[in-house]
Write a protein that binds this DNA or RNA. Structure first.
Lengths: 219, 219
DNA sequence: TTGTCAACTGTCAGTCGCTGACATTAGCCT
DNA sequence: AGGCTAATGTCAGCGACTGACAGTTGACAA
């Protein structure tokens, strides 16, 4: 079961694999840096590949589109949230499970991000995403896809069929809506710390019930 | 204040204006028909302009992008919903105002749509929008923009500042989330009538409270 | 070490969406 | 009728993206 000179656990990838990894990372870093400084339309794929010194064709073999590289970091976060939700205790009420999944993954997510690009760079890119219509649209679609996944996980937890009982999707849709408001307000505000975002999210989630309840003026 | 020979109300537009209107309508109809039959990627702008016999340049003078023509019909709906919300009685609780704005505009919207394209064609195009990633992303962004507008209207009704009090946005985000689930389930189902959609929406909105409330298993 | 195979990369030509510049056509108005 | 101007057409070009083919370079066995 063990090749000579190779350890069981992680049989250190060959030169080829390491080279690919380096190219991919270099492309991500160069692209994000350019997006953050010159903006989305101000950056061409040719600019990116010139910075890394590979051909344009190579870029498109690593990323299906110019968009995809912009969402490299958010992608890391999405998979972790789904992961977290899957491992919540089944006894927990659905909304509570969602809330804790997002809030608890936060630190872990940021550690993972830092391994690829400085967190500060990601934040700058995030602002570009929010202010560029084409990118913002893509962001919303990705969110919708994540929500669909979360709804399915919730349904399974509760022993329901997503296509028969709409409650999982309704819950997640409402939850996701609040998340987006949080992102928006947070990134428009001054305190861009993660603690600030966490607090904001917790506060907003607490307000969903009251906001939906009815007349705000008689509160 | 009155030009000689011109009637006050609607001084029937000149030939030039009527020609423009015809060209625009022809482009919309040709485009939607093509999208519905050949799909989004299967239709080029050249195909559309060939069907109407105008130059490509003319197409882009009427529509900023290939996307814009695909959303010509949804656009009609959006403005009417905002309009309806503005004219709801101020005493009504926010969620109730939103709900009635959408449900009550329905018939009016469909009448307006029919004046441009057959409703059945629009439904076929809508399915293309939902199943084409690029179009679906654009759809979500448009929804987000409408939600922002609705949030501002709600805030004004309640005498609040949207940027200070998050409740309007939270409410609308949750509401919008439910709307999207409705659209999804409806367009995937069999009964594509408008009555079916209205019922579905009403039902789902009623379930938001319970879904958020807590443990579904002790219900 | 060497040679073979397969993976990776580069080059090139071409499509499609979209735009600016400039020339042409055609309602409009005196 | 003729001038003004909006609408349209033509053309050249950019940028994202793709398929086809050729060259290069790790991997692996003889």
């Amino acid at each position: 079961m063990e090749t000579v000179g190779a350890v069981e656990a992680v049989p250190r990838p060959g030169l080829r694999e390491r080279k690919k990894q380096r190219t991919r990372d270099a492309l991500v870093r160069a692209a994000l840096e350019l997006f953050a400084t010159r903006g989305w339309e101000g950056t061409t794929v040719d600019d990116i590949v010139a910075a890394v010194d590979v051909s344009q064709r190579t870029f498109f073999r690593y990323f299906a589109s110019k968009e995809e590289v912009a969402f490299f970091v958010p992608r890391l976060a999405e998979s972790r949230v789904a992961e977290a939700l899957r491992s919540r205790p089944p006894a927990e009420p659905p909304l509570e499970a969602l809330r804790r999944s997002v809030l608890d993954s936060w630190d872990e997510i940021n550690a993972a991000v830092e391994q690829v690009v400085p967190l500060e760079l990601h934040l700058r890119v995030y602002r570009v995403i929010e202010s560029t219509p084409a990118l913002f649209a893509a962001h919303l679609r990705r969110s919708a896809e994540l929500e669909e996944e979360l709804a399915r996980i919730i349904a399974r937890r509760e022993g329901l069929d997503v296509d028969a009982d709409p409650r999982p999707r309704i819950l997640v849709a409402a939850f996701g809506g609040v998340l987006r408001v949080t992102e928006r307000v947070w990134s428009a505000g001054e305190d861009l710390s993660l603690a600030a975002m966490r607090d904001l999210m917790a506060t907003y989630l607490d307000q969903v019930g009251p906001a939906l309840a009815g007349d705000w003026r008689t509160g």
